[in-house]
């Protein structure tokens, strides 16, 4: 171990190493491992894989995970189409307001999730929203129904695909696309044969990041899910509700699934990352 150390690690270096390891262990590694342990062995409740499975297959939990996956799926689909489209427009086209647009599309990530929820309520709630009267006349419900959850989730994860695709598009340039066009390919052929293969890994990376963010969204979803006859309890809201209803075992079971999903996303991201580099 120490013999492979390239530079001399003096007492200061060793102290820094120790401080970092202890800090990260106490702040992250230990607490996360306790959550996993609590999922299998909750305080004052029957433990084991069977009990965990039972808690996860309870009707509330099944509904919550189903709703989370539905909302995340549509939010990711919308963000991917929008993200790839707007990236192509921003990098490949010149139009007035292009610079302003490229700054604005990065904005949603820096808005607090609670404010995102508030913003959507102020615009789309039938009671007090700007579009409230139109929505209640046409009978469309957004706040307190699945479309509202999808919009809140799409809002908070909006720039993730764009942030990955724009740098790749800028780096590869237009030579291959222009060559394809000059050889007689139409716009659609050029997109599917040339552009999409070059940005493929960037899109995959952005989709994984968006999906992880979408599955874990809590604040924005909590505010827009309030509806009289709608059960908007997603997986993250289920964790909060169960924990506050003193059913900690159920909260830890659901949290375990989300911890595993987060770890999976981290692994996929590390696997996808180098491929993107070798591609370009």
């Amino acid at each position: 171990m120490a013999s492979r150390t390239r530079q001399r690690t003096g007492p200061a270096g060793l102290t820094a190493r120790l401080v970092v390891v202890v800090y990260l262990f106490l702040l992250v590694a230990w607490p996360v491992s306790v959550v996993v342990q609590r999922a299998f062995d909750p305080v004052g409740q029957p433990g084991g894989v069977g009990a965990l499975w039972e808690r996860l297959s309870a009707p509330d939990a099944v509904y919550a995970f189903y709703l989370t996956l539905t909302v995340a799926f549509w939010a990711v689909v919308v963000n991917t189409i929008f993200g790839v489209g707007i990236s192509l427009l921003l990098v490949r086209q010149r139009f007035r307001g292009r610079r302003a647009l490229s700054v604005l599309v990065d904005l949603p990530m820096s808005v607090s999730p609670v404010v995102v929820g508030l913003a959507l309520v102020l615009t789309y709630s039938t009671g007090l929203g700007w579009f409230g009267s139109i929505l209640s006349e046409t009978g469309v419900r957004i706040i307190g129904s699945t479309p509202g959850l999808i919009m809140a989730t799409a809002f908070v994860s909006l720039p993730l695909v764009i942030r990955e695709v724009v740098p790749v598009l800028e780096e590869v340039g237009t030579d291959a696309e222009v060559a394809a066009r000059s050889l007689g390919a139409n716009a659609r052929q050029t997109f599917w044969r040339i552009t999409l293969p070059t940005i493929k890994w960037a899109v995959v990376y952005g989709v994984v990041l968006s999906a992880a963010r979408a599955i874990g969204e809590y604040g924005a979803v909590r505010i827009v899910s309030r509806g009289a006859e709608f059960n908007g309890e997603t997986a993250t809201l289920l964790i909060q509700n169960e924990y506050q209803a003193f059913d900690e075992a159920a909260a830890y079971a659901a949290a375990f699934v989300l911890v595993m999903a987060a770890l999976l996303a981290l692994v996929v991201v590390t696997v996808v990352r180098p491929q993107e580099g070798s591609e370009s």
């Binding site: 996360v32 969204e217 809590y218 993250t236 989300l258 996303a265």
Partner: peptide, 19 residues
Amino acid sequence: VIDLPFALPTIVAGLVLLS
């Protein structure tokens, strides 16, 4: 370990610390 706080949903982060 450093990337975990970004990858975990915020409500889970709270539960992680409470555990």
